[in-house]
C-alpha cells in the first residue's frame, strides 16, 4: 500500500506532495510536511556522521515505512508506504530521473526555484507520477 509522496527542494521547502491511500486524516498538512522533513533531515545527518553513506534508504515503524532518496542537487524525495513494501529507493530514483528531470527541469516554463506556495504544478509530471506509482508492485 502506497500512502503518499513528498518532494522537498534544497531550501527545505515542500514543493510537491500527493496522497493515494489516505486513512488518518491529518488536520494540518503544513505541520505534517514539516515533521516529515524534520525526521528525514535528522536521520540523514546521523547517517552521515556515523558512516560514509550519503543518506539512509528507509526507516519504518509498526504501521508505515518511509523511503528516501536525495539527488545530487539536494532535492529530497520521500515515499510513505506500508511496512511490507520492499525498498523503493530505485523507484524514487526513477521518479527523479524519468519524471522530474524530464518534465519539470527540462520545461523552460517551469520556475527553477519554487518560492513559498507555488511548488511543482505540471500536468505531465502529475500524470506521469500517478501512473508510475500505480504501476509499482504493492500499490493497492
Amino acid at each position: 500500500m502506497i500512502y503518499s509522496f513528498w518532494m522537498y527542494d534544497r531550501h527545505c521547502e515542500c514543493i510537491y506532495s500527493r496522497d493515494w491511500h489516505r486513512s488518518a486524516a491529518h488536520e494540518d498538512k503544513e505541520d505534517l510536511q514539516k515533521l516529515i522533513y524534520g525526521s528525514v533531515f535528522s536521520l540523514r545527518n546521523i547517517t552521515r556522521k556515523l558512516s560514509d553513506d550519503d543518506a539512509f534508504l528507509s526507516f519504518q515503524t509498526s504501521k508505515y515505512k518511509l523511503h528516501f532518496f536525495e539527488s545530487p542537487s539536494n532535492l529530497k524525495l520521500v515515499l510513505i508506504t506500508d511496512p511490507m513494501m520492499s525498498d523503493a529507493c530505485n523507484a524514487l530514483r526513477q521518479i527523479y530521473a524519468g519524471l522530474y528531470v524530464e518534465y519539470v527541469v527540462k520545461n523552460p516554463l517551469s520556475p527553477i526555484e519554487h518560492p513559498r506556495g507555488t511548488g511543482v504544478d505540471n500536468d505531465l509530471f502529475n500524470m506521469g507520477l500517478d501512473s508510475f506509482v500505480r504501476s509499482l508492485q504493492g500499490f493497492a
Binding site: A24, G38, S42, D53, F59, Q60
Partner: peptide, 27 residues
C-alpha cells in the same frame, strides 16, 4: 536527536496508532 525523531515518527503516521521508529536502513 534519535529520541526526538522517535517521538516525531509516531505523529507522521498515515495510519493511527503507530509506534515510533523501529528500524532504519542505510547502505
Amino acid at each position: 536527536t534519535l529520541h526526538s525523531v522517535h517521538a516525531i515518527t509516531t505523529r507522521i503516521s498515515p495510519v493511527a496508532g503507530s509506534s515510533g521508529l523501529t528500524v532504519m536502513e542505510t547502505p
